[in-house]
């Protein structure tokens, strides 16, 4: 009896410290990686400005959230940011479309090599980064309201009588629910609608798409709009779950790229799988397992934290997984299919 309780406690601790955070983080990464992979599939380059696009989208949402909050608008237990999200998406979409019109389109007309677009996206990255800092500053911003927890650790302990508590933040649940809805909608769009299919056709064979009468500029515009949606949602969810700080978004670039590449660039399913693989590995490897080890192996009393790597090395985890996958499957986990 004692033993099975121990195992149960270990399980709850695992859920609390590893599974729940990794699922939330994985959802955010997956949404980010989807944006990167869509641009890679359609426009043929990796967008270095994607982290800053997420920051811009989140910032726009935050500004509208503050405005709504000042008007006294509230969604009850749900964060007001949810209501502001459509405005944030619209603002980001406008910015991306304007960028495309003023910058990227010129290089398409010149038939520039994709690597030039990568350099161009660096320039956009500087500008967006500067823009976000200019408008909202570099500090931490809080904009979460509504219910904090779906269930607190104390409630869980009282309910179950276990030693370990399982805390589930409202934002975690929200992240997962929104991510599932967004991903389902995206896949429905890509696989079932005429426009979605034309995007897949374009990313498969541009010349043939042209010969079929598909308008490339329209495909590109729709891609930017979808990317704006994905980036804003990912950025806002990340901000709600953790906090909003422009620099952290820039740093998300590496895990997001890693997720997209591990999954197979250009492949949406791969982006999602990659996001969760990276998130779970990061959390698992940087988590201090001492507590759980104590439940599972009570006889073993480790003197350290039983942490494989300090959390500062979480980037190393994305990187090592990336290298391993590329060594054994150079085209990523899901190859063959594009957008």
């Amino acid at each position: 009896m004692e033993r099975s309780l121990d195992l149960l406690n270990a399980l709850v601790a695992l859920a609390n410290f590893v599974i729940v955070p990794a699922v939330a983080y994985g959802s955010q990464l997956a949404l980010g990686a989807l944006g990167v992979t869509l641009i890679y599939g359609i426009l043929r380059f990796s967008n270095f400005a994607h982290g800053d696009t997420m920051a811009f989208g989140a910032m726009a949402t935050i500004l509208v959230t503050w405005w709504l909050q000042s008007l006294g608008v509230s969604l009850g237990p749900l964060p007001t940011a949810l209501l502001a999200l459509p405005f944030g998406i619209a603002a980001t979409a406008l910015l991306l479309l304007a960028t495309d019109r003023m910058v990227y389109r010129f290089y398409r007309e010149q038939k520039a090599a994709p690597v030039i677009l990568v350099i161009v996206s660096m320039g956009i990255m500087f500008i967006m980064n500067g823009l976000v800092r200019f408008i909202i500053g570099v500090d931490d911003q809080r904009f979460a309201d509504g219910a904090r927890f779906l269930i607190t650790a104390r409630d869980f302990r009282d309910m179950t009588g276990l030693q370990e508590g399982l805390a589930i933040k409202a934002t975690t649940v929200l992240t997962v629910v929104v991510a599932v809805i967004v991903v389902a909608a995206l896949f429905w769009f890509l696989n079932k609608t005429r426009t979605g299919k034309s995007m897949r056709a374009f990313s498969d064979n541009e010349d043939l798409a042209l010969l079929s009468g598909i308008n490339p500029e329209r495909v590109v515009a729709i891609t930017w709009i979808i990317v704006a949606g994905l980036a804003t949602i990912a950025g806002t969810l990340y901000g709600l779950d953790k906090s909003f700080k422009p620099f952290t978004y820039f740093q998300l670039l590496l895990p997001i790229f890693a997720a997209a590449i591990v999954g197979g660039l250009g492949n949406p399913v791969g982006a999602i799988a990659g996001g969760f693989l990276i998130a779970f590995s990061e959390v698992t490897i940087t988590y201090a397992w001492k507590k759980i080890a104590g439940y599972v192996l009570p006889a073993w009393e480790p003197d350290g934290l039983v942490q494989l790597l300090s959390t500062d090395y979480k980037f190393a985890v994305s990187f090592v997984i990336l290298i391993i996958v590329l060594l054994f499957r150079p085209t990523g986990l899901f190859r063959g299919k594009s957008v």
Binding site: Q110, A113, V115, S203, E206, D207, G266
Partner: peptide, 21 residues
């Protein structure tokens, strides 16, 4: 002016052929 300088980095550029028409 806008050539690839022989870069074939698969982590940043899609090897797929662009529009040739």
């Amino acid at each position: 002016d806008y050539g690839s300088r022989g870069n074939k980095d698969a982590s940043i550029t899609n090897p797929r052929e662009g529009a040739t028409l």
